[in-house]
Amino acid sequence: MDFVTGGAHNGKLNWALNHYGSKSLVVREISEWKHTETLVIIDHAEQILKLPEADAFFHKMWEWEHSRPDHQLIIIGTDVTGGIVPVEKEHREWRDNVGLHYQQFIKEAESVYRIWYGIPQQLK
């Protein structure tokens, strides 16, 4: 698994499509996932993390990737942790949850990239 992060509207998905190949299946919602033998890019992981079934979904994706050596998973997550503390408790909890999950993704990832306005910086 590779993890790609960076701020909103920094060209993360465009970079990933260029870097990994545009023939990949891009999943923005859990329902868009279908079994495939190609590369899978999960875009907007931060939105999926709002759902109660998020952990089960990411676990399923992780198992799919490890079931065959040619399966490859890319997770793209927008960094939403760099602003001021949100007023609403729900938003604070989401932000914390996103940060903690990104830490876990980065720990498990083979490669990690931070995209800065279209330019990649490899962190791992």
Partner: peptide, 8 residues
């Protein structure tokens, strides 16, 4: 400026 890393 970079204002892209806050909450939506």
């Amino acid at each position: 400026n970079d204002v892209s890393r806050g909450m939506p």
